[in-house]
Simulated scan of single mutants.
Amino acid sequence: MNYSFEYIDIILLAMIAGFIFLRLRGILGKRTGFEGKASPQFEEIMKNINPEMKINKKNDFDENAKKDFLKGAKIAYETIITDFGDSDNKLTTSKPLLSNKIYDQFNTALKERGKRGHLAEITFIGVNSANIKEHKFLGKILQVTVEFVGEVITCIRDKDKKIVSGDPEKIKKIYDTWVFSRDTSTNNPNWQLVDTLS
C-alpha cells in the first residue's frame, strides 16, 4: 500500500483549511465595538507619529512626516468612531486621544443617548481617503486639519431593539474634517482631537 498519496491528501486538506481560516478571519475580523484594549499596532504608531513633525523652509511637512502622521490619524479616526459606537455608551479606548472639550461633547452625547435608551451599532468598514487640509502653529501648539472619507454601517436601536435610524445592511459614506493638536514644547509625542467639522 502506498502511503505517499495519504500524506499529499493531508497536506492539501491542511492548505484548504488554512485558506478557509484566513478568508473567515478577513470577513469576520472587522471590529463592531470596543474590544477592551487598544491594538499594539495603534499604540506603536501613536508613539511614533514623528514627535518633531519636521517642517521645511516652506513651512510644510516633509513626505515621511506626512505619511507617518496620516497613518496614525487613520487609526485614531477608526478608534474614536468605533468607541463612540460602543453599546455601553461610554468612551474608553479613545479618551487619551480627545481634548477635554471634545471628550465632554462626546460624553454628553453618549449620556443623552443612554437616557433615551438607545444603543448604537457601528461597523467600521474603512477609510477611503485621509488628506491634510492645512496645518498651522498657534504659538508652540501645532494644529493639523485632516479631511477623512470613511465607510461605516450604522444604526440606532431603541430599548426594544427596534431601528430608530440608520440601516444595519447598508454601507454609508461619511465625510469628516477633524483637527488634531500637539504641544511641540513638551516631550509628549501624543496628538489629540481638538475639533470636529462634519
Results as ranks from 00 to 15, higher is better:
residue 151 E to G: 04
residue 93 T to P: 01
residue 161 K to P: 08
residue 162 K to L: 15
residue 119 L to T: 08
residue 107 N to D: 11
residue 80 I to H: 11
residue 131 N to Y: 00
residue 78 E to Q: 15
residue 75 I to G: 07
residue 92 T to W: 04
residue 94 S to Q: 05
residue 79 T to V: 10
residue 111 K to Y: 12
residue 111 K to F: 06
residue 113 R to P: 00
residue 84 F to A: 06
residue 101 K to N: 14
residue 132 I to S: 03
residue 164 V to C: 04
residue 111 K to N: 13
residue 139 G to A: 09
residue 130 A to K: 05
residue 152 V to W: 09
residue 159 K to Y: 09
residue 160 D to W: 08
residue 96 P to V: 01
residue 78 E to R: 14
residue 142 L to V: 04
residue 109 A to R: 12
residue 126 G to Y: 05
residue 116 R to W: 07
residue 135 H to R: 13
residue 137 F to D: 09
residue 161 K to Y: 14
residue 101 K to A: 12
residue 117 G to L: 06
residue 117 G to A: 09
residue 125 I to F: 11
residue 139 G to S: 08
residue 146 V to N: 05
residue 156 I to A: 02
residue 102 I to P: 09
residue 82 T to V: 04
residue 108 T to C: 02
residue 162 K to D: 13
residue 74 K to I: 13
residue 107 N to E: 13
residue 135 H to W: 14
residue 118 H to D: 09
residue 163 I to C: 02
residue 107 N to W: 05
residue 162 K to M: 13
residue 100 N to W: 00
residue 159 K to S: 12
residue 91 L to Y: 05
residue 84 F to N: 13
residue 96 P to K: 00
residue 70 L to M: 10
residue 128 N to E: 15
residue 150 G to Y: 01
residue 123 T to I: 12
residue 138 L to A: 10
residue 95 K to L: 10
residue 129 S to K: 10
residue 155 C to G: 13
residue 88 D to L: 01
residue 90 K to L: 09
residue 120 A to E: 14
residue 164 V to F: 01
residue 102 I to F: 04
residue 122 I to A: 00
residue 128 N to C: 01
residue 108 T to W: 02
residue 136 K to L: 05
residue 72 G to A: 04
residue 72 G to Q: 13
residue 125 I to Y: 12
residue 162 K to Y: 08
residue 140 K to A: 09
residue 83 D to T: 00
residue 70 L to P: 11
residue 127 V to P: 13
residue 92 T to Q: 04
residue 84 F to T: 08
residue 74 K to S: 14
residue 130 A to Q: 15
residue 156 I to H: 02
residue 163 I to F: 12
residue 89 N to C: 13
residue 125 I to W: 07
residue 111 K to V: 06
residue 161 K to V: 01
residue 96 P to M: 00
residue 70 L to H: 11
residue 149 V to Y: 07
residue 133 K to Y: 05
residue 157 R to P: 00
residue 161 K to M: 11
residue 99 S to V: 13
residue 132 I to G: 07
residue 89 N to V: 01
residue 109 A to D: 15
residue 148 F to W: 03
residue 103 Y to W: 09
residue 129 S to A: 15
residue 149 V to N: 10
residue 110 L to V: 11
residue 91 L to T: 03
residue 117 G to H: 12
residue 115 K to T: 12
residue 70 L to Q: 08
residue 82 T to Q: 03
residue 127 V to N: 06
residue 87 S to Y: 13
residue 143 Q to G: 05
residue 138 L to W: 02
residue 101 K to V: 02
residue 82 T to M: 14
residue 82 T to E: 06
residue 70 L to D: 09
residue 140 K to G: 00
residue 98 L to A: 06
residue 90 K to N: 09
residue 88 D to G: 04
residue 75 I to V: 07
residue 161 K to E: 04
